[in-house]
Design a protein around this nucleic acid. Structure first.
Lengths: 199, 199, 199, 199
DNA sequence: ATTTAATCGAGACGGTACGTCATGTCTTCGG
DNA sequence: CCGAAGACATGACGTACCGTCTCGATTAAAT
């Protein structure tokens, strides 16, 4: 999720000019802005570099692929917004996650940017892998939320937590990417109750 | 879903050489083969044409976009395999659909080809639209299956059929594309029961 | 000296769209214009293509290197102007060649273009080879001019024709590229007489 | 021709570390080695710095351009070898210069290095100017050699000394750079006699 | 049988983006 | 201050595909 540029030889402290953090941020800012603005259009490295007032090489130096830039841009800024609550009530916790996940896509630039990100991942194996890691983290977090509920007895003993997690994220992504059904408060509530009722 | 080439002037019966069906099939064959073989690599129109021993223009003459070729190739061959049964038992019907959908991805070249198709759809708006239509048809079919169950009283009156459909296809695509969980008989059964229990 | 694009299989007459001659000429025109205008600045393939209203690939399709374009542009247009006369008088013939060679560099865009060409040849081995061939042809032509004089008895029997040729072209290029001495009518006459007197 | 780095404030004796002569030499050595070894390939500042075990900035601190390094490298080592004799015999003197000039190109790394130098000069205006100055010095030296002969009456009164000089260096560079004729003892003698005979 | 027109394989064309390379300037740190 | 290491903005490079277009040859219905 983080830019992973050149690693100096650990034996030698470091030599040469250090990474310019302002440049780093300018690139992420530009990437996020373009992700949000691009109405489906492709985002080119050239465009990011130009928008950031940066040379292309500087982008390539620090990120292995265009997708890695986009993903870091998104996670740094927009995807922090999903909390992982622990209120004591399973339904409240799950609903909070589902609802904030659903509603985060309504905001700019998160929604369009996320869509662009998935589009990029489709042709960038590197980004695909990063995205896989990112979603796995989310699944794990929700699974733990459910596990707490199971421990408290809010779920039947044999509940298939993985399936519950996938029902949440499956419906989310399916609807988000196809856009055939809304991702609003009401549908969040319905989905939450459906998942809890199923087990 | 079908190739929709030039339409002659309806006032005039027809003149000129007719479409070569062998060529048509050769293109679809080549497209499907490449879809299945491409381990993530991009599929170019050039490559399809060359593999089919055909000029690029011949492809463009009959399909509006690369994606249309790929989608027709897939639907002609591989995606026929999902039945829409009507046995009288809601669970049996739904399970049959879920199971055949899950298992169809285990076969070659359906699985890899479907993955490639989605990848292509991510950057081809035309194909994305076709894929949206295709998935809508599937959703409608499954919804009708559920509606029959509702009518028979196998589901509670207020059941949210659309959500049930999306839980099925959401989980399916989510797992299919990320590959973090199996799509086998057992998971089909669990998903089916979970969906039916939820309402 | 000529663009040597793809050669079709000689067994097969030809297939596919033919080379667009207008495009061909547009590229040569643009190249010559840029050669003449560039006051020492580098000429890029991009610039030639843009000036010709042509895609870069079209340039690369027909010429193996940037230099080949430039050389063909020059030879097609400017370097034709040096005649190889045969008047019966050795001095008249040689003087005509020396003078027209000297004066051709005073014209636009020949002079600047020729200088740019040599500059490009210094870093483009391909062009260097082409230039070597071009100069060899010129040397051969002048050598034959001198050989005719030798046959007529206008030169002593043991005259070193190759040295005479090199004295001409050596002085020409040396002065042309360094620019420390003029290349005018008077210096042409002096050089001619000096060469003839030497043998 | 000499490295002309920062000039300390003359009011103050000197402060800080002095220029490291070993580094200076290492850069010149590396430059000369690369000049000789590069079979036509470009020489980059990076390459010189790396070969000398030196930072790029150290090179830029002491020389205004890549060409200046190369020229200093060559003049420090290889180009000293051409003497400007004064034996009293015009032919002997001129022959000595011509011969030593010709033969110096047979040695390593002088020949290849000189060729590389000219190649670099073609795209480095700075080096081109330095080279112009260098060649002008050579021309002046030879011209003075000839002027002595003229004074002694070894040449006719109206002899065009500049032309004679250019015939020497013109033939030399022309043959050296094109490589179509040898630069050996015999051709040195022929050229010398031809030049002297011409006036 | 001739005309007419659409098909076919082949491939040239104007574009856009790619990822790499070299340039010359700048910054950082240890000596 | 000096020297190494290396980040930085710039801009050209040659390649890959895109979707359109043009070619000559082929094929088949309409005349």
């Amino acid at each position: 999720m983080e830019s992973t540029g050149p690693q100096g030889n650990p034996d030698r402290p470091h030599t040469g000019r250090r990474r310019n953090e302002a440049t780093h941020q300018a690139i992420l800012d530009a990437a996020l802005r373009l992700l949000g603005e691009s109405g489906g259009a492709n985002i080119t490295i050239d465009a990011i570099a130009r928008a950031a007032g940066v040379g292309k090489q500087t982008v390539y130096r620090w990120w292995p692929s265009k997708g890695a830039v986009l993903l870091e841009a998104l996670t740094e800024r927009s995807l922090r917004e999903v909390p992982m609550p622990d209120s004591g009530s399973l339904r409240d916790d799950l609903l909070a996650v589902v609802e904030s996940t659903f509603l985060s896509t309504q905001r700019n630039p998160t929604g369009p940017a996320l869509r662009s990100l998935v589009r990029e991942a489709a042709r960038d194996p590197h980004l695909a892998e990063l995205l896989r890691t990112f979603t796995a983290q989310r699944r794990t977090a929700v699974r733990e939320l459910l596990a707490r509920g199971l421990k408290r007895g809010d779920l039947p003993a044999g509940a298939d937590l993985d399936l519950m997690v996938d029902q949440f994220y499956g419906v989310f992504w399916y609807r988000f990417l196809l856009g055939h059904a809304p991702l609003d408060k009401q549908s969040a509530e319905r989905l939450t109750d459906s998942i809890l009722r199923a087990e």
